[in-house]
C-alpha cells in the first residue's frame, strides 16, 4: 500500500545561516486512517516539519534537501498554484492558536465556507447547508454561523478551526497542538471528535503535540524530535513502553503521572556526552541561542 504521506530526509535551514539545520534529515510515513504524532520540546522543529509539508515555510527559511510525497505525488516540485489546490482540499490544517488564526472581522460561517466555495465551487443555499452541517458535526449550533470569533469560547473557536479544516473532507489532516490552549475537559472532547472524524473519513492525521498523555490516547505511530532531528520513530506502544533512545527515556521520565506514583525527575542530558561529534556540535549551537 502506498503511504498517504512519505517524508524523506527533510532538511530546513535559515536562508541567512545555511549551516544551521533547524530540521535535519527527518523521515517518516503516514498511512490513511492512522495517526502519527510528532512530539518534542519547543524548538525541536516539529512545527517547522508540519509547515514544510504544507509548503508554508516563511521566506527566511529554506528546504534544502528531502522529498515530500503525498498520495504518491511529490509536493516539493509543485508550483504555488498547484500547491494551493491541494492545501485545504486534500490536506487540511489546524493551527495551534484558535484565537489568532481566525479572522476577527469575518463571521465563522464565512470562514468555514471559504474552502468550500474556493475548492468545491459551492454557492448559495448548498453552501449554507454544508456550513450548517459542518458546525453540527463539530458540536456548535448551526445558528451560530453568523457569530464572530470573539463571541465564541476558546474551545468553540478550536471547533470552528476543525470545521474549516475538514470542510473539503481532506485525505490528510495536520494538527499543530490543536488542544494545547484548551481546558482538559474540552481537550478530551476535541480529541474524541478528531478520532471520530478520522475513522469516519479514513483520514490520515499528523498530530503535533508535546503532551505524552495525548500521544498515549490517540497515536498509532510516534516520531520523537530533538533539536531538529528524529531521535526515535516507532509504534506508540514501542515508543512509550519500550523507548530505545536515551532522550525519549529522559523526556518520558519527567512527565508527571496522574497517579502521583512516579517520582518527578528533572530532564537528564547526560546521554548527550556519548553522542557522535556532529550531534554535540549541533547541540552546542542551539544551546547558545536564547530559546
Amino acid at each position: 500500500m502506498t503511504p498517504l504521506l512519505q517524508v524523506d530526509g527533510l532538511t530546513v535551514v535559515p536562508r541567512a545561516a545555511p549551516g544551521r539545520c533547524l530540521v535535519s534529515d527527518v523521515s517518516f510515513t503516514l498511512q490513511p486512517g492512522k495517526t502519527t504524532c510528532v512530539v518534542g520540546e519547543s524548538g525541536s522543529g516539529k512545527s517547522l516539519t508540519a509547515l514544510a509539508v504544507m509548503g508554508l515555510l516563511s521566506r527566511q527559511l529554506q528546504r534544502t534537501r528531502g522529498s515530500i510525497r503525498f498520495q504518491g505525488q511529490g509536493l516539493t516540485t509543485l508550483d504555488a498554484e498547484a500547491m494551493r489546490r491541494i492545501r485545504g482540499r486534500s490536506i487540511g490544517m489546524i493551527f495551534q492558536e484558535p484565537m489568532t488564526s481566525l479572522n476577527p472581522v469575518l463571521t465563522i460561517g464565512h470562514q468555514i465556507g471559504e474552502p468550500l466555495s474556493v475548492h468545491l465551487g459551492l454557492r448559495g443555499r448548498a453552501l449554507q447547508a454544508r456550513i450548517a452541517g459542518l458546525l453540527q458535526q463539530v458540536g456548535i449550533p448551526p445558528e451560530r454561523a453568523n457569530s464572530y470569533p470573539d463571541e465564541l469560547s476558546g474551545g468553540q473557536r478550536q471547533r470552528v478551526m476543525i470545521a474549516m479544516s475538514i470542510a473539503c473532507e481532506p485525505a490528510m489532516l495536520i494538527a499543530d497542538e490543536p488542544t494545547t490552549a484548551l481546558d482538559v475537559t474540552v481537550q478530551a472532547q476535541i480529541l474524541r471528535l478528531l478520532d471520530e472524524l478520522k475513522t469516519r473519513m479514513n483520514m490520515g492525521m499528523l498530530f503535533i503535540t508535546h503532551d505524552f498523555g495525548v500521544v498515549a490516547d490517540i497515536a498509532d505511530d510516534v516520531v520523537v524530535m530533538f533539536r531538529g532531528e528524529v531521535v526515535e520513530y516507532g509504534s506508540v506502544d514501542q515508543v512509550l513502553n519500550r523507548p530505545q533512545h536515551p532522550y525519549t527515556k529522559a523526556l518520558l521520565a519527567c512527565v508527571p503521572d496522574a497517579d502521583g506514583k512516579k517520582p518527578l525527575l528533572p530532564i537528564d542530558y547526560a546521554w548527550l556526552e556519548q553522542q557522535p561529534a556532529t550531534t554535540a556540535a549541533n547541540l552546542q549551537h542551539s544551546m547558545s541561542e536564547p530559546a
Binding site: 480529541l191 505524552f212 498523555g213 496522574a258 502521583g260
Partner: peptide, 27 residues
C-alpha cells in the same frame, strides 16, 4: 487531601475532570 480526591472523587464534576486527563485510558 490530594490522595483522597484523586482516588475517590465524590462529585460528578471532579470525576469528569479527572477522567479527562489525557493518557489515563492507556494507563
Amino acid at each position: 487531601a490530594v490522595e483522597a480526591i484523586y482516588a475517590a472523587p465524590q462529585q460528578a464534576y471532579t470525576q469528569n475532570l479527572l477522567n479527562s486527563i489525557p493518557g489515563r485510558r492507556a494507563v
